[in-house]
């Protein structure tokens, strides 16, 4: 149990300071570690948990669920503790970084390197998000109806301002009625 906590902390502290461009960019590594290395869950469970996590909160709440599942074998109380440990490990290091940089910001606010870093990091984030999208697609688009729902969601996101939570709830209802 202590060992699992240790793995969670070590993993998420590294991912925390690697998440340039938001939590989504660490998904490929998170999937690899949670499924292939530590065997906390199956690929299908990972993608299910990702689906559940985007219903609310900042983009990285799947971390909470990975912590929950990793410790589920020790009972519900420990599982929630695991979720808490994972969430803290994921959000604390990057938060401390915000405070530190915020303090010294004024001195390099005008530095041209700021623009350089931003332009340099964005394509890397994009490549990582692309890799994450592939992982999600492989375990969510199994059938023609799911493919159609995915494409409709993509189009709605790109061309309307519809709240994604409404889409999720609607898709859950539709697939419950038709795919049961």
């Amino acid at each position: 149990m202590i060992q699992t906590f240790g793995h969670l902390v070590a993993l998420f502290m590294i991912l925390s300071i690697s998440a340039f461009g938001g939590g989504k960019v660490v998904l490929p590594t998170l999937q690899h570690q949670a499924v292939d290395k530590f065997h906390w869950m199956t690929n299908q469970q990972f993608v299910d948990l990702f689906g559940i996590s985007i219903i609310d909160g900042p983009s990285m709440m799947v971390v909470t669920l990975v912590g929950l599942k990793a410790c589920l074998q020790y009972g519900y109380v420990i599982a929630i503790l695991g979720a808490l440990v994972a969430t803290i490990a994921m959000f604390l290091p990057s938060s401390i970084l915000v405070l530190i940089v915020g303090r010294y910001w004024d001195s390099w606010k005008t530095s041209p390197w700021h623009e350089s870093i931003q332009r340099a990091m964005m394509p890397i984030s994009t490549g990582l998000i692309l890799a994450a999208a592939f992982i999600i697609a492989r375990h969510s688009i199994h059938t023609i109806p799911t493919a159609i729902m995915g494409i409709i969601a993509l189009c709605l996101m790109l061309f309307t301002k519809l709240n994604p939570v409404i889409m999720i709830v609607a898709a859950a209802a539709i697939s419950w009625v038709f795919l049961r």
Partner: peptide, 15 residues
């Protein structure tokens, strides 16, 4: 069945 819809939308959001 519920989750099939949820993950399909999640995939669309990711894309």
């Amino acid at each position: 069945a519920l989750l099939a819809g949820v993950t399909a939308v999640a995939c669309g959001l990711m894309a």
